[in-house]
């Protein structure tokens, strides 16, 4: 479980997060939703400590990140996996080497075992064997996402962060990636946090939903309630697409 308490974060006087508090539960796909520019990525990177927050607490099962020293943060990172919005694979390494990289950094095992683990992870995300030796630039966006997921789960993380996992993907591939994250979360009892602005993902895999508007947490709940909330900003977000307008009509 990750608890965020009264977090503020600003960049050169531009306050992006305003007193955000939220709870992210273990073994669930927790979702942070909101418009582009609302502060989802900043919140996620603050939780991981990639941004230093101005104020507040971030507790990983009771351990407060802002209190930690650099080497303690590094130990914590051993338990963290992250899937970046643009995949962030290392250009100069092959697919297999990308997945082996975190293993080389952290795990004391032999080269043979690392390779085995990397191949296991790549198979788990359904990547074909023939792609293992290719460079990231030689494979499709959907495949890059799979590799990035494999890299994120290589060290069997307790906490998994996914920043807009289906940005830039077609609807069908998006669905597959979403479901993959959902399966992995349940299979390995991970505390997963997913940033998204996609209502389809929310309806597909959202289990504990946090709505951010202009850096403020405006709502937290589950997907059954999301259609019946008395919050203008959330309604605008939820019913932005024609499909969900229809859903609302049918419900009324």
């Amino acid at each position: 479980m990750i608890e965020v308490k009264n977090v503020d974060k600003s960049f050169d006087g531009n306050q992006v997060l305003k007193n955000v508090s939220a709870v992210f539960e273990t073994g669930k796909t927790n979702m942070i939703i909101g418009q582009s520019g609302s502060g989802k990525t900043v919140l996620m990177k603050s939780i991981i400590g990639l941004h230093r927050i101005d104020k507040g607490r971030i507790e990983y099962d009771g351990r407060n990140l802002p209190d930690m020293k650099m080497n303690e943060i590094r130990l914590l990172r051993r338990e963290v996996g992250m899937l970046f919005q643009g995949s962030a694979l290392f250009d100069s390494l092959s697919v297999l080497e990308n997945v082996m990289y975190p293993l080389e950094m952290f795990s004391p095992t032999s080269a043979e075992e690392m390779k085995e683990r990397a191949i296991f992870c790549l198979r788990r995300v359904n990547l074909e064997e023939k792609a293992f030796g290719l460079a990231p630039s030689e494979i499709s966006g959907g495949m890059q996402k799979r590799v990035a997921i494999a890299r994120a789960i290589a060290l069997q993380p307790k906490y998994l962060f996914c920043d807009e996992p289906n940005s830039g993907l077609d609807p069908k591939t998006s669905l597959i990636i979403d479901q993959l994250i959902h399966e992995i979360t349940h299979e390995f009892e991970i505390t997963t946090i997913i940033n998204s602005h996609d209502m389809n993902s929310v309806m597909e895999i959202g289990e504990n939903i946090i709505f951010i508007e202009k850096g403020v947490k405006a709502w937290q709940g589950n997907k059954d309630d999301i259609f019946h909330v008395d919050n203008q900003a959330l309604n605008d977000f939820v019913f932005a697409s024609e499909l969900y307008k229809q859903v609302r009509k049918v419900n009324q």
Binding site: K45, A88, P102, M105, F106
Partner: peptide, 13 residues
Amino acid sequence: ITEQIDALEIMGV
């Protein structure tokens, strides 16, 4: 900007 630096940091580098 492609977040490869963040990715390194996450891996404790």
